[in-house]
Amino acid sequence: MNILVCIKQVPASNKVEVDPVTGVMKRDGAASKMNPYDLFALESAFRVREKLGGKVTVLTMGPNQAAGVIREAYAMGADEGYVLSDRKFAGADVLATAYTISQGIKKIGTFDIIFCGKQTTDGDTAQVGPEVSERLNLPSIANVFEIDDVEAGSITVKMDMGDSIQTAKIKFPCLICVDKDIYTPRLPSYKRAKATAEQEVTILSFQDFEDQDEKHYGLSGSPTQVKKVFPPAGRADAERLTGSSGELTARLYDKLKELKFI
């Protein structure tokens, strides 16, 4: 079994603010971590490997420092890792990101299953996984919360459809986006981290790809444009209550009564 997991490095803190006067973004710290949703994709891959054997490869896109999440995946049990990094990839939206990842995957090899997490905590779109599957022309399923069975040639999974559950059998090769909590992710092992400290993380850049048209990557390959960013607007009709806790309790009670909720 050849299994690939797509992971991402995200900011450890969500604190980004826009100065309302200058429109300049401020972000505290450059600390980063693995996207928490990806831990579930990794765990799913390890479970499949435990059953059928094979190799788990991990891939990320980002600056060279993103190799940090590949090392973390090594410490959890991944066998091989790649970072797609090039300043030509800068400013990529979902379409260009998914295309870059699909080009990277084609360069690395062929896989029976590609696992992705539900979404990232910085982009929050949940769109990159499905777009990658389109670019690789693979059947795909998202919102997978259970793996029923995996055998040579196919995997049977349960998809959460909101009011109902669909059980689906998908032929390899395929792409699967798993939900949070599908399995409890294993912790990185200190022993394995030490053992893999010298293991190579391969960096792939634009020149390694089959498609050498720069217009398909980064900002040039992105149909969407962020015209402006701004802090969310406040409410003009807001009423502010201050005072002692006793006063606040009484006034809140009156408000709830006035609005007829009690």
Binding site: V94, L95, Y99, D124, P130, R135, N143, T224
Partner: peptide
């Protein structure tokens, strides 16, 4: 959330989530 990204990628166009 599964269908819209497939179409956007096939038409090579932009898709803005949520």
């Amino acid at each position: 959330r599964q269908l819209a990204p497939r179409i956007a990628a096939r038409m090579k166009t932009g898709l803005t989530a949520d």
